[in-house]
Design a protein around this nucleic acid. Structure first.
Lengths: 275, 275
DNA sequence: GATGATGTTGCACAATATGACACGATCCCT
DNA sequence: AGGGATCGTGTCATATTGTGCAACATCATC
């Protein structure tokens, strides 16, 4: 897993520390953190101090515990703003959300999870950033399965770390079943996930392609199964696919190239990977 | 400039690299970046590779240029969710209270009232936390007027339920007069309330902005008119504004973005921005 | 197909990051 | 309040790790 990157041990360690600050555990004390990452207390201390000095972490003035700092927030904002995918997607996402009357998201694949780049909530409750930046297991979401499906086969394994976690009764945790599902998704050009991530939650997604025809993101709508029932699903699928096509167009994708692109995409992606 | 932090050179360098990715220059090529930070090309390369391997940076598949990556977005989201106003504000509020020698508060707008989120009492008075959680009519407080002033016009009406209650002789209860006052507040960047809430009570407040430049809260100091008289007001205003800026920074707001954010916001988040 | 520019890797050296230890502060428990 | 345990911070010797140099590979341009 860890590449033979040499000469950057301390940087990797510092990043490892940063990544320990999750939603589940947003605050760490030196001792616990040092033990959790199995590093010397003094070393951890120095790294944390450096991160703090640079504003990537802050300490609670009272307890002395570390948290993610303002500089991370600022960097995150910049990362979001410099993401042309997100700006290309925003308008269409808005359209999609209002056309479908459900929450719409734009997501990408990161390791074995999907990351929410942009979200338009269903109601008019403006809650920006509430879910932007959050992640879900790829195998349990419509977007994740779709993004995996359009990956070159040999890359796919790198994005799946069995055993797959079961989140609901309907979560697909069998690799073979997942492969079949992905073949279907490729053939259909869209994906669904019905109560696979959470009981009562349904989502539908479609691919977003860049100028090269490569699938770089997924658009989706999601909502309660009571609203997104079998009767309404076909309509929703059509809407999501349309949104996906439109965002792709904004990224320079031209429909009529679709056929030839499939192999080119596979080749290109294959060639530029390591070794 | 660099403190006596030793044993973390490479980490500091890596962070320096990260921070080079600004809104003005969101994309870097190895060579330019190496030159810009005055580091050896190979060293820069290794650091960038490490950051890329960890997902903090991504490379453009065709040009090979580096950009901020998804992991930064994810971290930013977490930082935002874990860094609430209160903890961000506490330290600065303490500073403000001791610098001004008066009670300092952090407040947000809830319906037509302001809610005190955090308070540091004046140095000589006792009774800590006595007012946390209490509310005052927005139109009669410096913080309330300020928070209203920075709201989009159409939202403002939802936060004002005429007829406005008269609390002292100086309370502004005329909507037009209030509008004028708010225009002034926007122009000045701070607000005052002199005996508008209570006879003999004076307060000064300044805005707190989040990573998007949105005004999400107000800091203020308040005290008896005998101490907070015309002579001391300018000094107090400066202190409050400074505290406001510092808290904003902790929330990820970057001063130099102030202008650009305004129109990016117009594109991206149509509803929640003013103008 | 040659030329230049940019990105990547190998290697030797020493500066840098590391862990062990010790001191100091703070919290907690009785 | 006192005394003990726990956690954070500083020091120092050591060799591991990060560094710069320079050669090599790759890509774009003409």
């Amino acid at each position: 897993m860890t590449r033979s990157l040499s000469g950057v041990q301390s940087v990797l360690r510092a990043i490892r520390l940063l990544k320990m600050f999750t939603d589940a555990h947003p605050e760490w004390r030196l001792k616990d953190l040092a033990r959790a990452v199995e590093m010397n207390k003094a070393t951890t201390y120095r790294l944390l101090s450096a991160l703090e000095a640079e504003g990537l972490l802050v300490r609670d003035t009272r307890t002395g515990a570390y948290r993610l700092g303002p500089e991370i927030i600022a960097l995150g904002g910049r990362a979001l703003r410099s993401n042309d995918l997100r700006s290309a997607g925003y308008a269409e996402l808005e359209w999609l959300a209002s056309a479908a009357g459900e929450a719409a998201t734009l997501e990408i694949l990161v390791d074995d999870q999907v990351l929410i780049l942009e979200e338009i909530p269903a109601s008019h409750l403006l809650a920006p950033w509430q879910t932007i930046g959050t992640r879900h297991p790829a195998h349990a979401t419509s977007t994740g399965k779709l993004l995996l499906a359009f990956l070159p086969p040999h890359e796919r394994t790198a994005h799946l770390h069995p055993p797959l976690q079961r989140l609901t009764e309907k979560t697909i945790i069998d690799l073979e079943a997942l492969e079949k599902q992905m073949a279907l998704i490729r053939a259909q050009g869209y994906a669904t996930a019905i109560e696979e991530l959470e009981d009562g939650y349904v989502a539908v997604s479609a691919p977003v392609r860049n100028h090269d025809g490569e699938v770089v993101a997924a658009v989706s709508i999601g909502g309660p199964i009571t609203r997104l029932n079998a009767g309404r699903l076909p309509e929703c699928i059509e809407l999501v696919r349309q949104a996906g096509r439109r965002i792709s167009e904004r990224l320079g994708f031209r429909e009529h190239l679709a056929e030839s692109v499939e192999h080119v995409g596979a080749d290109v992606a294959k060639g530029e990977r390591r070794m």
